[in-house]
């Protein structure tokens, strides 16, 4: 038996909107730790890892570890029927081939339940090692989204370079080139508006903008985004989900032929 009650149901709606275009089908894993997902896109270029910790739910009952295969597009269709202020409860019985999403309006005057068919998904779980990154950039998530959107109108790839000068996002295309440099800026009053660059050593990597733009669909989840870069690893683009966990996107770099 599984019963997870999330008072801030809009978080789950936002999570789905941020992953449904990247991943078609995925297993949601439920354990004492929380509600999680790890999935790759169909071409194995990007990986998404989501964790919503059990403590973040108002009520969290998960009698035994359960993996529920869901079509994310269908799940999104159902969650779109929940109001932004609704409380969402996810329910499943042991051995059942369905999951139920219950939506309660804040005033309890409307209660809806949507039952969705589960699916069997053969998914490969990957081990993501703890790593030291050459550079970690934290910046406003809206600023990062704007940069990715702007650069994708010029080129298909972005070179992200971190030096002591700052972080530079560059692209080139048929019509020309573009460079955007963001410098460390901690003087602003609000910490979520600051740009913080931790650099152990300079790093420069090239990524497909199509994926970066897809990751920025998670922007409504967090004011800040953290970009961790290492020349030996996929980049990690992380959005913290307030008091609950995170959504992390890993993207393999372009490699010189």
């Amino acid at each position: 038996m599984l019963e997870l009650r999330l008072v801030q149901g809009s978080l789950l709606k936002k999570v789905l909107e941020s992953v449904k275009d990247l991943v078609t089908d995925a297993n949601f894993d439920c354990s004492a730790t929380g509600f999680s997902l790890q999935a790759m896109d169909s071409s194995h270029v990007a990986l998404v890892a989501l964790l919503l910790r059990s403590e973040g739910f108002e009520h969290y009952r998960c009698d035994r570890n359960l993996s529920m295969g869901m079509n994310l597009n269908n799940m999104s269709k159902m969650l779109k029927c929940a109001g932004n202020d609704d409380i969402i409860t996810i329910k499943a019985d042991d051995g059942s081939d369905t999951v139920t999403f219950m939506f309660e309006s804040p005033t309890q005057d409307k209660i809806a339940d949507f039952e969705m068919k589960l699916m069997d998904i053969d998914s490969e779980h990957l081990g993501i090692p703890e790593a030291e990154y050459h550079a970690i950039v934290r910046m406003p998530s809206a600023e990062f989204a704007r940069i990715c959107k702007d650069l994708s109108s010029i080129g298909d790839t972005v070179v992200i370079s971190v030096t002591k000068e700052g972080v530079k996002f560059s692209t080139r295309g048929d019509i020309g080139t573009a460079n955007i440099v963001c410098r460390q800026n901690t003087s602003v009053d609000k910490p979520e508006e600051s740009t913080i660059i931790e650099m152990n050593e300079p790093v420069s990597l090239t990524f497909a903008l199509r994926y970066m733009n897809s990751f920025t669909k998670a922007t409504p989840l967090a004011n800040s985004v953290t970009i961790s870069l290492s020349s030996e690893l996929p980049v990690v683009v992380e959005y913290k989900i307030a008091e609950m966990g995170y959504i992390r996107f890993y993207l393999a770099p372009k490699i010189e032929d």
């Binding site: 790759m40 071409s43 194995h44 270029v45 990007a46 990986l47 490969e124 779980h125 990957l126 081990g127 993501i128 090692p129 790839t157 090239t206 497909a208 690893l233 996929p234 890993y250 393999a252 770099p253 372009k254 490699i255 010189e256 032929d257």
Partner: peptide, 14 residues
């Protein structure tokens, strides 16, 4: 020219 890297060449199945 560059080619697209693959997640599976960085992270191993567990």
């Amino acid at each position: 020219d560059s080619k697209q890297g693959n997640i599976l060449s960085f992270f191993k199945k567990v």
